[in-house]
Structures are given as structure tokens and as C-alpha cells.
Nucleic acid binder design. Structure first.
Lengths: 249, 249
DNA sequence: CGGTAGATTGATGTACCTCAAAAGCTGTGG
DNA sequence: CCACAGCTTTTGAGGTACATCAATCTACCG
């Protein structure tokens, strides 16, 4: 089902995602592979990026899952987004001085560190790569907006359905899912913090989706039992994920 | 209380906002004033930008208020953000081909049209201006993230308090508010669509805030009766609005 | 084998919604 | 100047989707 992470940068999740929307030359790809040199590992429980810290590096996620979140003074937390292989971590933190959110691993993570200098250098060498990264950043923002709509105007069941469908669409881009489902390391506590629900209610919602024959999330695997009806329930419209490449390319 | 919109671009809300965080030279300011040439008016009820449309212009809001939103298939809508004088409308729509959201005026709007070409041209002439606009875009994104946290993890009262405080901070940057309050043209229906509540509940929340002696929103004016306690209630931390200017400057 | 983290289920409480209706304001035409 | 329509605000009554608290159960791990 899920593919192993390839050793060659030409077929990394990052490359796979970008080339799905912007054609990249051999030269673009080789510049990109330079960004893959300083590989670091992060264990679960150790923040990769944290709020208020200045002059951070950014990272490209090579393997594992992470999440970005904010802590409330009341103690609760809200997960803003999950990151999967091929995603940037902390792109905003490197363009600007201080980070306004935290990023932590959900599973053990391997990620390539990219400093601000390296990023700008790569951009000047291949404008197409810059355009592709800009496209990726805009897509991230579109996902945050859709997440906001999710929290503001959908019921718990619709939220969960929408979330699982979006995740599936994203994972397919990097070859880690197909129409039947995907492996998913997220606990019900993480789902709760992302969807603005309690963990108890997440459990009940998953049970209902299962009993309705729509989708099954058990033992770390999401299986779509009735994809079309799930799309209808979630009012899932993937236009926001598919927008065309940047004009600048 | 609220200042009249100045005629000179050097003291426009746009300039005022950007110069609060990035020092701009006389040359930067004059390039910027070129962006102010094609002034257009929009009446309430007529979309400025709409979802799915391609090759849009962007605008800089000169006077009036607008809001960006998404419509759900179920009929409801979620307001993502309000725009006040000095804000960009549809910056993402011009960097990329199609818009994934709508923008409509809340009051009659005057806005300056900026095409993609003009924007890129201005950027190449003054990198500092590009940096300043990038800073503004990043601040917008930070506001969307905070809005998401608001919807996911705060109660209705906290949400409303946080929203009014954020709006006050933004309006102060362009001289349209002070610590005592501001003029606010938003109906309770608009507040409801922004905060993920029903209009009825918005009304009750506003009454409670008034009766607690925290803030009064009546007859188009927001008055802070006890600013400090309101900040405490909302857990308002304005760090996400104040982050430092871009490193690129 | 005990300890810990996650999943599951039940009982109860509450924050918010929906429906309904009245009252204030604003503009429009007669 | 009044009558009326249309929006917005306000208030009440009743329903529901969610949270909270608490307990049990499982899986995993040293």
C-alpha cells in the first residue's frame, strides 16, 4: 500500500509532489537534491520548531508525520495542520524571524534542514523551483482556509469525513495512499486536537462512520468502504487542492 | 475617532501599515503610489472577486470594509477574514490562476486595482517593497491561523472578545481606532458567519459582554469598557500581529 | 508481569442551535 | 408626513450536538 521512501532525491516525496503540478527540468531536480544533504532525525516528543524561537531553519519532511499547532493559555491546543513526506516544515519561520507556532513529530521523523541562505540560493539558480515552492506554500494556505471552514461550519461527522478525504488526496500525491485507503499513525487525541473535538467524541464519530459503512479507521489504517457517499457527506470538493501551477513558472 | 482617508498615497492606509514594520524610502513610496492609479468603486452586494474565476486582478483597499468567504454546498457560509483599508484583496488570486474564495464589500468600497504585471514590476524596482508586501501576506496568514484556533478551541464569548481585540489592533495600525474603541459596520449576521455561531447567539454573547462591563457594541460602534479584563478573558496575545519584519529587507 | 497509552462505552451536563415572534431603524413611495 | 416593507436587533422556549467525568478494556513495552 504505502510506498517505501526512495533513496534517490529524483524520486523523493518532495519531487513527486512538485512535479505533479510544475514541470521540472533535470537541472531543477539536481538543484533540489542539494537541499537534501543535511538530513536530521527527530524522535517523538521533541519539538522540531517552537513558538517564539528566532532564526530557525526550515525542513523538508523525508519520512514520518509531523503536526504544527498552537498552545492556548487555557492549556488546550489546536493542531493547525499535519505534515506528511514532501511537505515543508516552518517555511514561514525561515522567511520571517520568529515562529508563531510549534511543530512536533507524530512519528519518528527524518527531515532535511534548509537554511534561509540555501533556499534563496536555490531559488536564484532555478526560478522554476521557486515557483514550485511558492505553489506549495499557497496550497498549504488553501488547506488552512479549508480547515477553518471545517471548524466553523461543519458537524463533527462531516469534519472527520472531510479530514480523512483531504488526507487521502494529499497522501496519494506522494504515493502513500490509493483510493482504497492509507496507513495512518494519528491517535484519536491528535484527531481531536485537529478537529476541535474531544477525544471521546472522535471515537463515537469514527464508530458511526464505520457502522454507516462509509469508512473504517482501525489499527492504524483508514479504509474507505464507500468513497462516493463519504464525499457526499463531507461535501468534499477537491478544487482547493488542485489549483493550477503559478503563472510565474 | 476614526480618521478620514488621506488623499496622498504617502499617507494612505496601505503606506501607514507597511511603514509601521518596514522602513520605506521616498523612492519606495513613490513606486507604491503608482499602484494607486486605477481606483475602482464597488457597491455592497457585488462580488469583488469570486471563487473559480481565473486571471483576476488584486486590489488594495482604499476605503470601506470587505470580507473574504467560502460558501458551503449545504448553503451556509464561513467568513475567513475581514479586510480594512490598507489590506490586500485577492493577493493569492493574482499570484496563482484561480481564486478559491469570494470577496465582497461590507460597506461601499474604493479599491485600487493592481494587475500581476504591475505588482511584479514594482517588486523588481524596489525589493524593499516586495519584502514589505511579503510581510503583509505572512501576517494575513498568521491571522487566518489564529482565527482557526479561535474556532477550534475557544468558547463563543472568548471568540467574540478575541475577534474584537484583533480588529482593534489592526485598525489602530491604520489610524482608524484607539484604545477606547472603533466604528464597526459589521452586522450580527456577519459576525456569526465569521465566528461560526448563529446570529441569535452572537446577540446573546454581545449582551453578556456588555452586562459584564467589558465591551459595548451598539449602533455601529465598539467601545471597550474594560480593556484589560477583556484581554484576559480572550487570552489575547498580540505576538502574532507584531512579528518582526522580513529578513529579506 | 505490572505499567502506561490508547480505544471504547455509559451517564450526565451544557453551550449552542433552531424556531418563533416582537420591536427598533431606515429607506421608499404615495 | 405617514404607511409600509425590509433589514437588524432583541428576547423566549425548547431541542441537540457536543463536552466532561468516569470506568473498563486492550495493546504494547520494558
Amino acid at each position: 500500500m504505502t510506498q517505501p521512501i526512495p533513496a534517490s532525491p529524483q524520486d523523493s516525496p518532495f519531487a513527486r509532489k512538485l512535479t505533479a503540478f510544475v514541470t521540472l527540468s533535470q537541472n531543477d531536480l539536481s538543484v533540489m537534491s542539494d537541499l537534501y544533504r543535511r538530513r536530521r532525525k527527530f524522535a517523538v516528543g521533541i519539538d522540531i520548531i517552537h513558538q517564539g524561537q528566532t532564526d530557525q531553519s526550515a525542513y523538508v519532511l523525508a519520512s514520518g508525520w509531523a503536526c504544527s499547532y498552537k498552545i492556548l493559555r487555557s492549556g488546550g491546543r489546536q493542531i493547525v495542520d499535519f505534515q506528511i513526506p514532501g511537505d515543508f516544515l516552518g517555511l514561514r519561520s525561515v522567511l520571517f524571524r520568529t515562529s508563531d507556532h510549534n511543530v512536533e513529530p507524530v512519528t519518528p521523523v527524518r527531515a532535511s534542514e534548509v537554511t534561509q541562505g540555501e533556499l534563496l540560493d536555490a531559488f536564484s539558480r532555478t526560478p522554476r523551483l521557486a515557483a514550485a515552492v511558492l505553489w506549495a506554500a499557497s496550497r498549504d494556505e488553501a488547506m488552512v482556509v479549508e480547515h477553518l471552514v471545517n471548524l466553523g461550519r461543519r458537524t463533527a461527522i462531516e469534519r472527520m469525513a472531510h479530514f480523512l478525504l483531504e488526507l487521502n488526496a494529499r497522501l496519494r500525491l506522494v504515493g502513500m495512499a490509493d483510493k482504497s485507503g492509507f496507513l495512518c499513525p494519528l491517535s484519536q487525541y491528535l484527531l481531536a486536537d485537529a478537529l476541535g473535538l474531544s477525544a471521546v467524541h472522535v471515537n463515537r464519530v469514527l464508530r458511526e462512520l464505520r457502522e454507516e459503512g462509509l469508512v473504517t479507521f482501525q489499527k492504524g489504517r483508514v479504509t474507505f468502504d464507500n468513497y462516493d457517499d463519504l464525499v457526499t457527506l463531507a461535501m468534499f470538493d477537491r478544487a482547493y487542492l488542485d489549483h493550477d501551477g503559478p503563472l510565474l513558472a
